[in-house]
Amino acid sequence: MLNIKNLHVKLEEEDKVILNGVDLSIGAGEVHAIMGPNGSGKSTLSYVLAGREGYTVTDGSALLEGEELLELEPEARAAAGLFLAFQYPVEIPGVGNMTFLRTAVNAQRKARGEEELSAGEFLKIVRAKAKTLQIDADMLKRPVNVGFSGGEKKRNEILQMAMLEPKMCILDETDSGLDVDAMKLVAEGVNALRDAGRSFLVITHYQRLLDHIKPDFVHIMAAGRIIKSGGPELALEVENNGYADLLAEAE
């Protein structure tokens, strides 16, 4: 599904290297988790994959089903099936959540040569999906993320993911700021989307989320590289011992 090879990234405006040769390969239907200390480059990796400005790729590649993502505009990456649930979802005053969702869904359908959803069809689908995530009608009407609580913003990200039905989902700390029940809701939302044709990359600091969303592989990122990969037991090791041993080992 997603093949990242030797990805090197620096800041566009400064000579600061953030990603230092990331290699990561995610198969169709797999769930991978990335853990790692603050500032190790996890969010940067997700932003670079999604196409955010401000970064320069100095080497490497990232293929989504064989197609080079790094050459595409962000909207084309989305249409190709990539989705990033933001660590810090963005507030957009003046743009209604519903308008935002519908514009996004239809823009992607159009880019893929599919027919756009009518207002009625769209409404039916969004209502059903919002309900399972316990997102009420009021939240759908309000401007995108404006005045949403931290947990509401994260649930709204998952609603967008459910509506857009991407192939490759990257979740950047979607569990942070969620209470226990909300985390369960979000995990259920994610699990409901799991299938053989859809892959996940879950960035998290806590093993807790991985109890709900069971990963096939766990990777540890430090100083802009994946320093160790393993199974779910790696997450438990981090939970119990922190990163010190892993970092020392990698030296």
């Binding site: 955010r52 962000p74 909207e75 957009i92 935002f100 514009t103 823009a107 992607q108 880019a111 857009l164």
Partner: peptide, 8 residues
């Protein structure tokens, strides 16, 4: 960027 990342 947020809008673009959603395919707009």
């Amino acid at each position: 960027f947020y809008l673009q990342s959603r395919g707009v």
